[in-house]
Nucleic acid binder design. Structure first.
Length: 103
DNA sequence: TAGATGACTCACA
DNA sequence: ATGTGAGCCATCT
């Protein structure tokens, strides 16, 4: 858990910033973008370790089903859902339509 | 150093 | 369609 080294986490977080407005992404997509999709789990851990939800739009990351993360940082799924709606993303039962919003 | 954990995904029944 | 099992990775204990 050290700050300046763990490049993996940082890389994932940086990837979040690459998400355009009004769009969402999935763990596997990020994992693939980095190297291989098997990293999906590690990506989840990276977001979990994210200490700056304000800086990194971790709320724009959902799983393959399009479900929002139940363990979202501070505001919980409610805040996450709200943020997504703020970007024009329609949220149904804490789920988003990947067909339309996934990159 | 080795074992367990988790914000995951896929395949199969 | 829903439920269970196995595989993968990085980090934690």
């Amino acid at each position: 858990m050290d700050n300046k080294k763990s490049s993996f986490k940082k890389r994932v977080l940086e990837s979040l910033k690459d998400i355009p407005y009004g769009k969402v992404t999935t763990y596997s997509s990020i994992a693939i973008g980095l190297s291989n999709k098997n990293l999906a789990r590690a990506v989840g851990n990276a977001l979990h370790s994210n200490n700056d939800p304000n800086k990194y739009p971790c709320y724009k990351v959902v799983n393959s089903k399009g479900c929002l993360s139940k363990h979202y940082a501070f505001n919980g799924v409610e805040g996450q859902k709200k943020l997504l709606k703020e970007e024009g993303i329609e949220v149904k039962d804490y789920k988003v339509d990947l067909k339309k919003y996934k990159i």
